[in-house]
């Protein structure tokens, strides 16, 4: 009566069904979130929104042009801080830090740092830059975001540089190429797509941060004039507008969220393009 074959087939099917159902349920919040942001945000999404600055309180219209520029500025400053340090530290860890104590400490710190709540990073940047300079600035915000980038970039760079086969390094040494030239011209060149992917993912990650900007870059209702003044960002602007009592601002908050989502998705997609084929990482 008891047929092991049938039993196995049915457990098989049940498991497949359950996992499929779980995967489906996992998608629901994601899809509904996307759909909701699009539905609410698309209303105000037009050229004016992308190119004009906010109107004074109570007047309908305006947009988040300055916040978009601000977010891009912040990301660029963050890259200036985070990429050189992160990439070089990653190379150090993979090329010279196989077993030494210092490298272990760096790795440990990077792992801790990537788990530090972003608001804490914000306070640090506030104390280090905003307080001594006596004003909120894009510089402070960018540095705060840069701090957040360092551990991510360090670890992804390390992992990807490690992927470069040892034989490639040996081949270069055997040609009489010195170690640092091998690293610069052969190893990094071989791993560059991978490193670029890591960089893009870290950008996507920090572009959506609000907390560290609240008391570093703060906010601004006008076009930026430099990096040493308070600067608007999409995230802070969305936050400000979303909690305001005005219907028009609330709508704009959704549109701002949509724009941010599109930017982040675009960066993520670019990263995916490089990542598409893991073998291409080493191209």
């Amino acid at each position: 009566m008891f047929d092991y074959q049938t039993y196995r087939r049915w457990t098989d099917r049940t498991m497949v069904f359950l996992c499929g159902a779980a995967a489906f349920i996992a998608m629901i919040p994601l899809v509904s979130l996307l759909a909701y942001v699009i539905i609410r945000g698309v209303k105000r999404l037009d050229w004016t929104f992308l190119t004009s600055i906010p109107t004074p309180v109570g007047i309908t219209g305006g947009g988040m042009g300055n916040a978009i520029v601000g977010t891009i500025t912040l990301v660029i400053i963050a890259c200036c801080v985070g990429l050189p340090i992160g990439i070089m530290a990653g190379i150090y860890l993979s090329e010279f830090g196989k077993k030494n104590k210092f490298a272990w400490c760096v790795r440990f710190t990077a792992d801790i740092l990537s788990g530090v709540p972003s608001i804490v990073t914000g306070i640090v940047a506030y104390t280090l830059i905003v307080r001594p300079m006596h004003n909120f600035s894009a510089l402070a915000g960018g540095v705060a975001l840069g701090f957040m980038m360092i551990p991510i970039v360090t670890r992804t760079t390390e992992e990807l540089v490690k992927l470069v086969p040892h034989s490639i390094r040996e081949a270069s040494w055997a040609l009489g190429v010195s170690q640092w030239k091998t690293i610069l011209n052969v190893v990094i060149r071989t791993a560059r797509n991978g490193i670029l992917t890591g960089v893009l993912l870290s950008i996507a990650r920090i572009a959506g941060e609000t907390a560290p900007l609240l008391f570093t870059a703060f906010n601004n209702q006008f076009w930026p004039h430099g990096i040493n003044e308070p600067t608007a960002s999409l995230t802070v602007q969305v936050f400000t507008y979303a909690i305001s009592p005005f219907k028009d601002w609330q709508d704009q908050a959704w549109t701002g969220a949509l724009v941010l989502l599109i930017l982040v998705l675009a960066v993520n997609m670019a990263a995916k393009l490089f990542f598409k084929n893991p073998r291409q990482l080493l191209r």
């Binding site: 086969p165 034989s167 490639i168 040996e170 081949a171 270069s172 040494w173 055997a174 040609l175 009489g176 052969v186 060149r189 071989t190 560059r192 080493l282 191209r283």
Partner: peptide
Amino acid sequence: VRRRIGMVFQKPTPFPT
């Protein structure tokens, strides 16, 4: 030394990039 004494490895190792 390595410039004067070259080496070819078991597995071909062209630089992929």
